[in-house]
Design a protein around this nucleic acid. Structure first.
Length: 284
DNA sequence: CCGGTCACCTGAGTGC
DNA sequence: TGCACTCAGGTGACCG
């Protein structure tokens, strides 16, 4: 579900609401939602203090201080993952619908004392790490730099090193991390570049423009708390950036720049929205 | 290295 | 109403 702006919103809401609290106890209702052994996961996080919550690509990282020393919990929401507050489910009490893990937290009012991980499609995963494991996991993950902070030099270098289509390369989290289907389509439209262009065909001026437009869009989307098109919401509510989408979900409507009908077709296995008239394959 | 397809799951929307 | 079918913001495995 969520891409960089939505994950950023969720992580920031989490940091406000659960940062500094202790995990009194934890429970897992659907063990597959946890990577590895779910009882070890519960043992690992129980009693730990949540130091801070941050976005890392499309991952959410909970920094933990536990009895066994510093550690972390990572969450990936995939398509439909969410966090929400509710009442800690005592033994035998029903869980809220589609909730698969729960964390009872210190210092919250009764009835709102538990953080739930909810995920309709169950694609998301939670995982807990000690410091060594985390380092190894992040190394294996080999996630690319964040588009909000990558330098124009490095962005150009990374695109130039790849022979795939622009759409596929921007979706690859090993190239840059955080972009997904919506924001790739919106960024390519803003930069006037075709999703079908070869990534290594772009001039330096074109990669500079693409990065500049992607950042402008991502920042505006973060301001708007992300895009809500079906069921995304942060702990403090959903976002409104879907109202600013220029091409995503607008196939058949006139292009905001030239008036030609916007197209949709599958590129890199994903539904792709673009203007066939003003998104060019590169002038290099 | 690259692209295409499927798998992982459930629910919403559409057309008959 | 019901059923069949398609689609969804992600990613990883597999195949040619």
């Amino acid at each position: 579900m969520p891409e960089l702006p939505e994950v950023q919103t969720i992580a920031s809401d989490l940091d406000d609401i659960v940062g500094g609290r202790r995990i009194i106890q934890a429970a897992v209702a659907y063990p597959k939602i946890v990577a590895g052994d779910s009882r070890r996961f519960v043992d690992f996080v129980s009693g730990a203090k949540i130091e801070k919550v941050e976005r890392f690509g499309k991952w959410i990282r909970f920094g933990l201080a536990g009895p066994a020393g510093p550690a972390a919990m990572l969450a990936h929401l995939k398509m439909t993952g969410q966090f929400q507050l509710g009442a800690w489910p005592e033994e035998g009490r029903a869980w809220p619908a589609h909730c698969h893990a729960a964390f009872q937290l210190s210092g919250l009012p009764p009835g709102q004392d538990a953080l739930f991980y909810r995920d309709i499609r169950k694609f998301g995963r939670l995982r807990a790490f000690d410091p060594g494991e985390l380092e190894e996991f992040l190394r294996a993950l080999a996630q690319g730099p964040d588009p909000l902070t990558v330098s124009p030099d490095e962005f150009h270098r990374r695109l130039s090193a790849r022979r795939g289509r622009l759409k596929a390369v921007l979706l690859d989290q090993g190239c840059v991390s955080g972009l997904g289907n919506i924001y790739v389509d919106e960024s390519l439209f803003a930069a006037g570049l075709s999703p079908l262009a070869a990534a290594d065909s772009l001039s330096r001026a074109e990669t500079d423009l693409l990065l500049k437009e992607a950042r402008r869009i991502l920042k505006a989307a973060i301001e708007a708390r992300g895009s809500t098109t079906s069921n995304y919401k942060g702990l403090k509510g959903g976002g409104s950036f879907q109202l600013a989408h220029q091409v995503y979900g607008r196939a058949g409507e006139p292009c905001p720049k030239c008036g030609a009908a916007l197209t949709r077709r599958v590129v890199a296995g994903r539904t792709t929205h673009y203007c066939p008239h003003c998104q060019k394959v590169s002038a290099k």
